[in-house]
Simulated assay, not measured.
Amino acid sequence: MTKLIIQIPCLNEAEVLPETLAKLPRSLPGIDIIEYLIIDDGSTDDTSGIARRWGVHHIVRHRRNRGLAEAFRNGVEKCLAEGADIIVNTDADGQYAGEDIATIVAPVVAGEADIVIGDRSVAENAHFSPFKRALQRLGSYVVRTLSSTDITDAVSGFRAMTRDAVQRINITTEFSYTTDMLIQAGRKRLAIKSVPIRTNSATRPSRLFKSIPRFIMSQGMTITRAYTTFNALRVFTLLGAALTLVGLLPMARFVWFFVNGQGDGHIQSLVIGGALLTVGVLVATLGILADLIATNRKLMEASILKLRRMDEKLEAIEKAQKETEVSLEGIETAPERRKAF
């Protein structure tokens, strides 16, 4: 029995949520059970009430707004707890076509991918401004390069994931999970596939960020942090080497003047060069320490994955025991019922 849970992070989406829910699929090839989950991220309207009245199976509610990354993280945790084999994440504002859920789920059902990203064809998408198209293409190129993947729309939130893939990824950012997740998935060598999807025009401005500069800064910090986490030795070694090379320049200048008998007036070059060399060595040393920490993180993630799977096995055993107890109680009470009859 393959179970799919479609999760939708929401913030004050009471007006548009009914239309979004109405377009979600009720059945899909290769899927036996489809359920819906709403993450109400501190809405001040009736988002949760609308979800309940529309028969949404699971609702996760935050008392105050915690951000998209936390909403996504809590949503997938709930999906895993409810036994989802496949998880689809989509938006409540209707940007993504509900009919395309079948498109992004198909490669997962076929066993061709662990994660499928809905590609909005940013370069030709008429719903995006020229500046946004250029910005999205640049950002996707950076993430594609750093994650060693072939994803053309890195920030698309429309994606399908296997249970195993979700269990292997630990979102640490507080801004947006999209790029962090891709860099982790790429570095953990998960099978990632991109498929073209349709999009609708925006019904309202984005609530993820208030301005383009703030979005660029937040995404840049997220990408840098995620990449450094998995490539600490490379990042710090390159930075240390760059500082060392810069430090050699003023020192070479001092040596030149010293050889020509003019060293007394250029001692500051020696001081600056020595300081930069020292900083470069310290940064490279930090890289070694950061790499050891990254190795420890890998061991911890492997342990967390084992614990998650052990918990699932224990829950399955407890469920089977309860079902057995109920069956035995029914057998024991059957003769008594016949006597009473």
Rank of each mutant, 00 (worst) to 15 (best):
G98C: 11
G67W: 00
E332Q: 15
E82S: 14
R26F: 04
Q184H: 03
A165K: 01
M310K: 04
E323G: 03
G111Q: 06
F341V: 01
N65Y: 03
S194D: 12
N200V: 04
K339Q: 10
D291M: 08
F72E: 03
R308E: 02
L208W: 10
V56S: 03
P205F: 09
I117Q: 02
L239F: 13
N200H: 14
H266M: 11
L21M: 09
M161G: 02
D119Y: 05
L80Y: 05
A284G: 14
R133Q: 14
R52V: 01
A232D: 04
L37E: 10
T295N: 11
S201E: 09
N125K: 06
M1K: 15
R63L: 10
I33C: 14
V142W: 07
R73I: 02
G42E: 05
G220I: 08
G42L: 05
D264A: 14
G67Q: 00
R159H: 04
F215S: 12
R163T: 06
I331N: 05
T162I: 07
E77C: 11
T179K: 02
M161N: 03
R133V: 09
E312S: 08
L286T: 00
G330N: 11
E323F: 08
A84Q: 11
T179R: 07
L80R: 02
S140W: 01
A275N: 15
G220V: 12
V279G: 06
M181I: 02
L277N: 15
R198E: 15
I171T: 06
R120P: 02
D91Q: 06
L243I: 13
D164G: 00
Q184W: 01
R297M: 15
G240K: 13
T285P: 00
T229W: 01
I288H: 08
T145L: 11
V235T: 15
N296Q: 14
M1Q: 14
G261I: 10
D291R: 10
T237K: 09
A97G: 15
M300Q: 05
T285R: 07
E325R: 08
R159Q: 07
